[in-house]
Simulated assay, not measured.
Amino acid sequence: MIPAGFEYHRPADIASAIALLQQHGDEARVIAGGHSLIPMMKLRMADLSHLVDLQGISGLSGITIGEGSVSIGAMTTQNALITDAALAEAVPILREAALQIADPQVRYLGTVGGNVANGDPGNDMPGLMQCLDATYTLVGPDGERQVAARDFYEAAYFTAREDEEILTAITIPIPAAKGYAYVKQKRKIGDYATAAAAVLLGEGFASVAMTNLADTPVHSDAASAALAEGDVEGCVREALQAIDPQEDMRGPIAFKKHVAGVILRRAITKAQERAA
């Protein structure tokens, strides 16, 4: 598994990175931590002539806790999400999810921006960001714009990000909910989820999202509404109607639906215990 030849660029600022994307078009792609893109390049699933590394650009990492929201730079590593005490207090489900991503070696380099930006349905953060109602900041030739995480994912590896745009930050409203859980079933350490569920639960409020059970993450308004009313089985029923798993090495469709129901019930139970 060796990638095809490519030209490596390490710009010093966002404007230079965008200029490279404009110059090389479809032949160029930005890279953050590399744990999503490099495997695709090795498998020749991504054939690129130009790789634009964001590591040399300052100001793209860091966590800022505001009164009502959290801002996370796209180049912030998963490990930083785990070790930031203020973030763990404000949005503890982020730490819980990050601890379940791959292994420590990956989490030290893998970035939250890279995890959410490329549209891989198996990544953990996209579904979680939909559960949290996060907003992505995209910067391109025409300036900056905001896109809700729930509107960002269009199909597997297809998103609302334009080819010449770069995702620079994520903004998350601090949840009023005290109950939370991110529960994931996977075959082995480091693997994608067979099924994963993110749940937020508060007084008259709930939010539910599922991971790797369709070609995009699945946030279900109907499942969230049912759970907000205390109807656990109604929530599970609505979530299972919203997903669209495909048979692959992780199992047939019926098995994935069964696992999805089990994992979602576990996440709801954990969130209820924490909310009590």
Rank of each mutant, 00 (worst) to 15 (best):
Leu200Ala: 01
Ala176Trp: 04
Gly113Ile: 06
Leu48Gly: 08
Lys257Met: 08
Val262Ile: 12
Glu203Phe: 06
Ser71Leu: 11
Gly202Val: 04
Ala74Cys: 09
Thr111Tyr: 15
Ile38Pro: 03
Ala197Met: 04
Asp244Val: 00
Gln22Ala: 12
Asp248Gly: 09
Ala254Met: 00
Ile93Gln: 05
Asp231Thr: 05
Pro92Val: 07
Leu94Lys: 02
Asp103Ser: 12
Ala223Tyr: 04
Gly251Gln: 04
Ile189Met: 13
Asp215Glu: 11
Leu138Ile: 04
Ile243Leu: 09
Met210Cys: 07
Ala134Cys: 10
Asn115Asp: 13
Ala155Gly: 06
Asp47Leu: 13
Val106Glu: 07
Ala15His: 12
Ile263Pro: 00
Ala134Gly: 12
Ile174Asp: 01
Met41Asp: 01
Ala228Asp: 09
Pro141Cys: 03
Ala17Asn: 10
Leu43Ile: 03
Ala209Lys: 13
Ala198Ser: 15
Asp26His: 14
Glu273Phe: 02
Arg29Val: 08
Glu154Met: 12
Thr135Leu: 08
Ala117Asn: 08
Thr216Tyr: 13
Gly113Thr: 05
Val70Glu: 01
Pro141Ala: 15
Gln272Arg: 14
Ala88Asp: 10
Asp142Tyr: 12
Gln55Ser: 15
Gly127Pro: 02
Ala260Asn: 05
Ala148Gln: 14
Tyr108Gly: 03
Phe152Asp: 01
Gly114Val: 03
Val236Tyr: 02
Gly202Glu: 06
Tyr180Ser: 11
Gly119Asn: 10
Tyr180Ala: 09
Gly59Ser: 10
Glu164Arg: 15
Gly234Glu: 01
Ile253Arg: 15
Tyr180His: 15
